[in-house]
Amino acid sequence: MSLSDDGGYGGDRGPETGQTRTRLPDSGGDGYGTGRRPRASLSSRNLVTGVGVVVLLIAAIAFANRSGDTSSDSPSADSPKSSDTQPTAPTGTKPVTGKNGDIATGFAKTEQGAQSAAANYAVALDSSGMYDSDQRDVILDTVYASSVATARKESLRKLYTDPKFLASAGLKADGNAPRGTTFVSRANPVGTKTTQFKGGTAKVEVWYSLLFGIAGQGSQNPVSENWYTSTMQLQWSNGDWKVANIKQKAGPAPIGSDQTAATAGEMSKAVQGFGGFTYAR
């Protein structure tokens, strides 16, 4: 109903005069009586109701978002099984308590903690530090269980001191890059997946890309990107996750883009200027 149809706005005819008497809304009254205030129209009431609904929706969304921040150290009954795909997201559990050099240590004894350990260990085991004998021993002592570290040190020492292997990587016989160039070996985890988890053992897959090569003018081994998946058997030892065994396979690799490759100078500057991450679930 429009305002003009309301009784407060309509004219009513006076007796015997034949004239129209008009009451104005909110008037102080006249000789024919006090004026009446118009009632709110249906459209006005609908507007107020609509605004109220919007306010309630906004309040509900804000409350839901705030409620979603609550976290628990243990998964709920609705959590996906360990074999299901799980998004990388905060869990509320602090994933790392310390570091041994540049390697994160002190992971939680949970599936997320095992995934964090595996991702960080993949970075360490594919780093340029593996080509230096002193750094390599520190990495292996940190990453591997003590029962297998000694054997791994010996087998990897033979590999990383093999002149043919070093030459294939573009390095000199002493393991160093040619003068004026930068050796790059940096793993970048994309995701992790727990395929087995029981008490103090876990099997975790890490999918990652690896930047590898020599950055610099005249390099015969320019930096390129390769993709791998490492499967790690982890065991809980002395308050942390340690690698008992590891296997690596190529891929899955995405289709290469047509993005313009960086120059040798740009790549060297990027590698030297951008530090790595501590990866955590």
Results as ranks from 00 to 15, higher is better:
A124S: 06
L125T: 02
L125V: 13
L125K: 09
S128R: 12
S128Y: 05
G129H: 12
G129L: 11
G129Y: 03
Y131V: 00
Y131M: 09
Y131G: 05
S133G: 10
D134V: 12
Q135Y: 11
R136W: 08
R136E: 05
D137S: 12
D137I: 05
D137V: 11
D137P: 02
V138Y: 05
I139S: 00
Y144G: 01
Y144Q: 04
A145V: 01
A145S: 05
S146L: 13
A149I: 02
T150F: 14
T150Y: 05
T150P: 13
A151C: 11
A151I: 06
R152H: 06
R152M: 13
R152Y: 08
L156W: 10
L156Y: 15
K158P: 09
L159H: 03
Y160L: 01
A167W: 11
S168Y: 13
A169D: 10
A169P: 00
K172S: 08
A173Y: 03
A173D: 09
A177Y: 00
P178K: 00
G180K: 04
T181Q: 02
T181Y: 00
S185W: 01
R186D: 02
A187I: 07
P189C: 00
P189G: 04
V190G: 08
V190Q: 12
G191E: 09
G191Y: 01
G191M: 10
G191T: 00
T194Q: 10
T195G: 10
K198G: 08
G200R: 15
G200I: 04
T201L: 11
V204N: 15
E205C: 06
V206T: 01
W207F: 15
W207C: 11
W207T: 14
S209K: 09
L210T: 09
L211N: 13
L211K: 12
F212T: 06
F212I: 12
G213Q: 02
I214F: 00
I214K: 01
A215Y: 02
Q217A: 10
Q217R: 05
Q217L: 00
Q217V: 01
G218F: 03
Q220P: 09
V223C: 03
S224D: 05
S224W: 11
N226Q: 10
N226I: 11
N226K: 09
W227T: 02
Y228C: 06
T229W: 12
M232V: 08
M232T: 11
Q233K: 15
Q233A: 08
Q233P: 07
Q233E: 11
L234E: 06
L234F: 07
Q235N: 14
Q235D: 14
W236I: 13
W236R: 04
S237G: 14
N238P: 15
W241L: 15
W241S: 05
